[in-house]
Amino acid sequence: MSSRRDRWAELTGGQDGEEYARRFARLAEAGHDVHGEAAFCDALSEPAARILDAGCGTGRVAIRLAELGHRCTGVDLDRSMLAVARREAPALEWIHGDLAHLDALGLDPGFDLVLAAGNVVPLLAPGTEPVVVRRLAALLRPGGLLVSGMGLDAAHLPLPEPTVTLTDYDHWCAEAGLTLRQRCATWSGDPFHEGGGYAVSVHVRPAA
């Protein structure tokens, strides 16, 4: 495992699972759409796609994608988050592990889509970001998609300042053999404009 703590662990101490789940339950009860990420990924996918939710947290997105008929696996380093996911959807595959060491988890490659939502990339352990992107890309089939969502300013992050730029992220994706296919400002697909505070990026692994 990485010797450096990820930024999420620094923020929460790895004990935030139940409160995180309650927060989204309150949003849903208030009438907010909490399935934007799943709807976005579903629209990009063929039926019964094989999807990896990297940094799956409490499983909210993977569970919804499974309800839509996809074959989902979730990976997270936060045991409190995974405890909620396993309780809510015990039939799905939930794996405890560090995204910087995905190669050690025994996952079969060939995923149709790999998702890193919820500011996963900005909250990684400092310096591990290029490695994680490379690990995620390696799990994609030719033609498979890496989908990420990340805040680009303090207003869209649980941090005082951004840790990743889109230039950095696109460079890491290019080094991993991926090409940018689409970029939006929201999970609803709103157009992205330079200087925006949030980006949803879709990179593709070129077909062999």
Rank of each mutant, 00 (worst) to 15 (best):
A104N: 11
E175L: 12
G57L: 04
L124E: 04
L146K: 12
G195L: 08
Y198C: 00
G149V: 02
L107I: 09
L140I: 02
A176T: 03
F192S: 03
L99S: 07
E175G: 12
F24K: 00
E29I: 03
V131Y: 02
L178I: 09
A174E: 14
A48V: 01
P191S: 05
E37K: 12
R26E: 13
I63S: 11
A117W: 13
V34M: 08
L107V: 04
G177H: 07
Q15S: 15
D53Y: 08
A116K: 05
A138E: 13
W172V: 05
D168Q: 15
Y169D: 01
R134I: 01
L140F: 02
S201W: 00
V61C: 09
R22F: 07
R60T: 07
L152E: 02
G97D: 00
G36L: 00
A185R: 15
A39G: 07
D112E: 12
D168V: 01
L115R: 07
V132G: 03
G118I: 01
D16T: 04
A83F: 12
L146Y: 10
Q182I: 06
V75E: 10
A91N: 13
P130V: 03
R5F: 11
G195P: 06
H32Q: 14
G31H: 10
A49M: 06
A207D: 12
A62T: 04
M150S: 00
P158A: 06
R141A: 12
V34D: 01
F40T: 02
D42Y: 09
L99N: 08
M150I: 04
A176K: 08
L77P: 02
V84H: 10
G127N: 02
F192Y: 15
A208V: 14
V131Q: 15
A100H: 06
P160D: 12
E10M: 12
A66T: 09
V204A: 15
A48C: 09
L152N: 03
L99A: 07
A66I: 08
H32P: 00
A104E: 15
P90F: 10
A154T: 09
L178H: 01
L11I: 14
T128L: 10
M81R: 11
A21Q: 13
A154R: 15
Y169T: 00
L65Y: 00
T128M: 04
